[in-house]
């Protein structure tokens, strides 16, 4: 279930000592959402359960960021990302997401876990927003969405490469 939501310019915030927590299965379907998540995004837990995590995806997010995210999770590596999410009513909220794979006792990945915290507003304003706009422009500049993704991903990797040894290191240096 993914209702068509029009994004608005309203911003929702949460407190620094709060964590938005969700767990998904390997396909990204939500298997757990905490109360904070439900409160901020405006969907009830019942609505969130089994919904794809993209239910809160905001159109301002470049797709290459999610590609990077899934690539890195595919390598069983944690990832940090600044993500702009969209609430049920179209409002947006910025999070600093920390996504990690969950393992069973045999070390097999059983799903993913996301802890989202209040992001540094300065980083969002000065670095992330302009960067994501740029990447989004690149994605939009290609006729085929696949080509756009390849181009924006390469662009992102080049930016990373020019500034730090890795994406992770770059994120932590911000």
């Amino acid at each position: 279930m993914k209702p068509r939501v029009q994004p608005t310019s309203e911003e929702v915030t949460f407190l620094p000592d709060e964590i938005i927590v969700s767990k998904t299965d390997l396909k990204g379907r939500i298997t757990y959402a905490n109360a904070t998540f439900s409160r901020i995004c405006g969907y009830s837990r019942a609505e969130l359960m089994n919904a794809p995590h993209s239910i809160i995806r905001h159109p301002d997010m470049p797709r290459c960021v999610f590609k990077l995210l899934w690539d890195q999770l595919g390598e069983e590596r944690e990832i940090f990302a600044y993500v702009k999410n969209m609430a049920r009513n179209g409002a947006f909220y910025w999070v600093f997401a920390h996504i990690t794979p969950s393992f069973d006792n045999d070390g097999k990945v059983t799903g993913y876990h996301s802890s989202r915290r209040v992001p540094d507003r300065r980083v969002v304003r000065e670095v992330i927003e302009p960067l994501y706009k740029e990447l989004l422009r690149t994605e939009a500049a290609h006729a085929s969405s696949k080509d756009g993704l390849v181009a924006s991903f390469a662009q992102l990797m080049n930016i990373v490469k020019s500034k730090a040894a890795s994406y992770d290191e770059l994120i932590f240096s911000l």
Partner: peptide
């Protein structure tokens, strides 16, 4: 859960000789 994931990821990073990784204190 958040603490354990953070702490183990931070320690894993140290194990892999990446020293930029810190535990985020928020929450």
């Amino acid at each position: 859960d958040a603490f354990v994931r953070e702490a183990s990821a931070a320690m894993e990073a140290v194990r892999l000789n990446r020293y930029y990784r810190r535990i985020l204190p928020n929450g």
